[in-house]
Design a binder for these strands. Structure first.
Length: 325
DNA sequence: CATCAGGGCCCTG
DNA sequence: CAGGGCCCTGAT
């Protein structure tokens, strides 16, 4: 990839998320497989952002603390193609994707003494469920993780970025930006299959076509109640019971979106909640519903991410075995 | 070497 | 509602 887009200009804004707020828990999700459109170091987060047909580089810096959160948002852009970014709209988009104005005070109050959740809630108090991706991009990410192992998901994703994305340089970072749905919609399915996507090529094309058609109004979807939203999403080719939950939770921040536990999660939650190797999914579901009610998926998210954070510092053999890199 | 499941989903009967 | 097929990879 010879040509790198260099974002030569920048503009700053300050955002105050709702307290409590965990910068690192919100902007880095160690359980997620990495994609080359974002990067993280303690206290700083970078990502590329395709928004309103422009390519941006975003850098977020932590200027606050859990009880007094504050971020600096730096928007990098190309002055040749854009006179001045719409900072208000960009900040609103980031606030939505990262759920920055969510009020988690009652979640924390209710569960900071819960024997299962205590450690995760204490350590990650104010962590949001969040995603760097647009709805379209998130669907690509979930399509690519279906029915395979992490290493292959990473490979497929990198193949896609190399073929359809582009390189962006800003704030000393070199990252890729996503492509537009139209870029995939117009290519031949066999060209996609050459990227070792297998049967997922068909799914990626069909989903891209939906976005190109304009039939999906994301802002309108945000206002739907969870059940209606779920019905709409399940009609989309390639979205089944596992993927729809990931979308409801991570993109639309529905904190209770868990009705189905896929095998991999079953193994992990069996350990984290019951300290057993394998517990029946119906037992897990009943337990988390009884304990955490409307917050049940957020509660699982705290447990899940906390386990993956711990894995960075200590050996967790059972978790290592479940992550087949 | 061959076989097989892997962080699902679609389609058919 | 059950079960086969799907792409490719690395583990066995």
């Amino acid at each position: 990839m010879a040509n790198t887009l260099i974002l030569d200009s920048e503009i700053d804004a300050v955002v105050v998320p709702a307290a409590p707020f965990s910068f690192d828990g919100t902007f880095h999700k160690p359980s997620h497989y990495p994609t080359p459109d974002h990067a993280y170091e303690t206290g700083t987060y970078w990502q590329t952002l395709l928004f309103d047909n422009h390519i941006y580089g975003v850098r977020l810096t932590n200027l606050g603390e859990v009880n007094h959160p504050k971020l600096r948002v730096t928007i990098h852009y190309d002055s040749q193609s854009l006179q001045r970014p719409d900072v208000v709209a960009l900040v609103a988009e980031l606030e939505y994707r990262f759920d920055l104005q969510a009020d988690l005070t009652s979640f924390v109050r209710r569960f900071r003494s819960d024997p299962v959740l205590r450690r995760a809630v204490t350590r990650w108090r104010g962590m949001r469920v969040s995603t760097a991706y647009s709805l379209y991009e998130f669907m690509v990410v979930t399509t690519v993780l279906q029915n395979t192992v992490v290493s292959r998901s990473v490979q497929m994703m990198n193949n896609l970025f190399n073929a359809f994305g582009g390189k962006v340089s800003f704030a000393t970072k070199d990252l890729f930006h996503f492509w537009q749905p139209a870029d995939i919609a117009r290519v031949d399915e066999n060209a996609l299959r050459a990227l070792k996507l297998g049967y997922r090529a068909k799914t990626l094309k069909k989903q891209a076509e939906i976005f190109v058609s304009g039939d999906l109004d994301v802002d309108q979807l945000k206002t739907q109640d969870t059940e209606s939203l779920k019905k709409i999403l399940l009609k989309i080719y390639g979205i089944g019971p596992a993927t729809v939950q990931y979308i409801l939770f991570e993109v639309f921040h529905r904190y209770d979106a868990i009705q189905h536990i896929p095998p991999w999660e079953q193994k992990i939650f069996s350990r984290l909640i019951f300290e057993q190797e394998l517990v029946d999914t119906s037992v897990i579901l009943k337990e988390v519903t009884d304990r955490y009610g409307e917050w049940k998926m957020l509660a699982l998210h705290y447990l899940f991410e906390n386990a993956f954070w711990m894995r960075k510092h200590e050996k967790i053999p059972w978790l290592d075995d479940l992550i087949r890199l």
